[in-house]
Amino acid sequence: MDRGGIPTIAELMALLATKAAEVEALAAERDSLARRILKLEEELALARLHRFAPRSEKHLDRVFNEAEQASLEDDTDDGHDDVDEPAAADLPDTGLPEARKPEGKKRGRKPLPADLPRQRVEYDLADDQKVCPCCSERMHRMGEVVTEQLHIEVKATALQNARAKYACRNCDRTGIATPIVIAPMPAQPLPGSIATASTLAFALVHKYVDGTPLYRLAQTFERAGVPVSRGALGRWVIASSERHLHRIFDALKLRL
């Protein structure tokens, strides 16, 4: 500053440069905060998606043309017999070593597991069809052609537990109090419930392994002819978890 207290041009230029640097720093901080806000908004949207969107199925499993895409996989079952690929034309001998042919994809469906229970269904010709169309003599059975199909059937049945009930005729005749003895049942996973161990396993596998919501599981029971409410399914799941699944949890916790 000069003697009159007025800043010089150099001082004004230095102050202006300082203010410009501060403005630039504030702008950079503003841009950084804007990017952080955008990132936080994206994380919030992703968290909401994970919390409220259906997580029981992958996105690829919900595409409209799932059947068309799945049919392009190697293990197909198109209802036709296997047909060999046509042989490629032989190339002229060039004297060069034979090129290694790429391994082609194996065609045809995979055989059913050998340990799968087999149910034999026989089909035979009618008696009037067992006559030779050439000489009209009766034909003999020379063998059979066996093909296998996968058969899965979901059927609900009612399991009746008939417990034998015994009483003493002598005590009944003599007027003494007649003791009544009823045959005991094996320990049940949920005493007093209509669900058997197999039914509970069916519900728990669909709930925890397949990720099926309870309302869809209730629809599955309804299609099988046995309406089971969502509340009953919830009680089955909670009671099974409290009574039995805690052992699995303790074992996993001990192992980890």
Results as ranks from 00 to 15, higher is better:
Arg243Thr: 02
Thr94Trp: 02
Met142Leu: 10
Glu11Trp: 02
Gly225Thr: 04
Gly211Leu: 04
Met13Glu: 13
Leu72Asp: 08
Ala88Ile: 11
Leu254Ala: 08
Met185His: 03
Lys110Ala: 09
Ile238Cys: 05
Glu11Ala: 15
Ile238Thr: 13
Glu148Thr: 06
Cys135Lys: 01
Asp78Met: 12
Glu85Arg: 12
Leu200Tyr: 00
Ile238Trp: 02
Leu200Glu: 00
Arg216Leu: 05
Glu144Phe: 04
Ala87Val: 04
Gln119Lys: 15
Cys135Ala: 07
Arg216Lys: 15
Arg100Trp: 08
Pro117Ser: 07
Gly192Asp: 08
Ala195Lys: 00
Arg36His: 09
Arg3Ser: 13
Arg230Trp: 01
Gln119Pro: 03
Asp75His: 05
Pro92Leu: 11
Pro179Asp: 01
Gln160Trp: 14
Ser229His: 09
Leu256Tyr: 15
His206Asn: 15
Thr220Ala: 12
Pro213Tyr: 01
Arg51Asp: 10
His80Val: 07
Ala167Pro: 01
Glu148Ala: 15
Lys19Asn: 11
Thr196Glu: 00
Arg141Gly: 04
Pro179Asn: 01
Ala34His: 14
Pro179Trp: 00
Leu125Asp: 08
Ala45Asn: 03
Ser198Phe: 06
Gln160Val: 15
Cys134His: 11
Glu153Phe: 03
Ala70Gly: 05
Leu214Thr: 05
Pro86Lys: 01
Ala89Met: 05
Ala28Asp: 15
Leu150His: 04
Arg3His: 10
Thr8Met: 03
Gln188Asp: 10
